[in-house]
């Protein structure tokens, strides 16, 4: 099966990501006690080979927090934070980034932000979905993103990535936020939103 998406479909997915990241930013703002801005999400349907470089340089070091989505729609939510921004986020929460508390604090940020995103998706689509517990890794961006893409790459030649940014106001600190749904489920999701190909 070759999976392609029309502009109308990508618009609908972008809107979905927009609402989801709106909820996520509210959750992050509550956690940090600071205002958080969201960017307009980018919805890309790309050949697998091009997906990593669309997100960032493959060898750049990042911390990734990954939550699986299970239930009627399968996929992953991934938060990516640069090492500098990881230090800032941890400082907002009063912990050292390179202590064991640091990684667990970032995991908790990922958990709360990712879960509110997934809950927003569930509320909008009526899908019965829930997040799996967060897993964190600090490594090459390519290795983190490719591993998440690979989990949903079977049976489709297109990687669908919805990319938003959450920026902590006035602090030059941002989180890149990816939703990588399994291809088959996306057609069903679009169907529920009343969007045909």
């Amino acid at each position: 099966m070759s999976t392609h998406f029309s502009d109308v479909q990508l618009d609908a997915l972008r809107e979905l990501a927009n609402i989801g990241s709106g909820m996520a930013s509210t959750a992050l703002s509550g956690m940090l006690g600071r205002p958080v801005d969201i960017s307009v999400p980018v919805a890309s349907a790309l050949p697998l080979a091009e997906a990593v470089e669309a997100i960032g340089p493959a060898e750049q070091e990042v911390t990734g927090v990954m939550l699986g989505i299970i239930g009627e729609l399968k996929g992953s939510v991934v938060l990516l934070v640069s090492p500098e921004d990881a230090v800032k986020l941890c400082a907002f929460l009063g912990v050292e980034a390179d202590s064991e508390w640091g990684l667990s604090a970032l995991g908790e940020i990922g958990n709360i932000v990712g879960t509110s995103y997934i809950n927003a998706l569930a509320a909008m689509t009526g899908f019965e979905i829930e997040p799996t517990p967060p897993a964190t890794a600090t490594d090459m961006l390519g290795a983190i993103v490719a591993t998440c893409l690979a989990e949903h790459a079977d049976g489709t030649d297109i990687a669908l990535v919805l990319d938003s940014d959450l920026a902590v106001e006035g602090d030059d600190c941002s989180i890149s936020f990816l939703l990588i749904p399994q291809a088959g489920g996306v057609q069903e999701l679009l169907g529920r939103l009343g969007i045909e190909a």
Binding site: M1, A150, D154, D157
Partner: peptide
């Protein structure tokens, strides 16, 4: 990328 599976048209 994966151990085995059905290749899609543009894979």
């Amino acid at each position: 990328v994966l151990s085995k599976g059905e290749p899609a048209a543009g894979d």
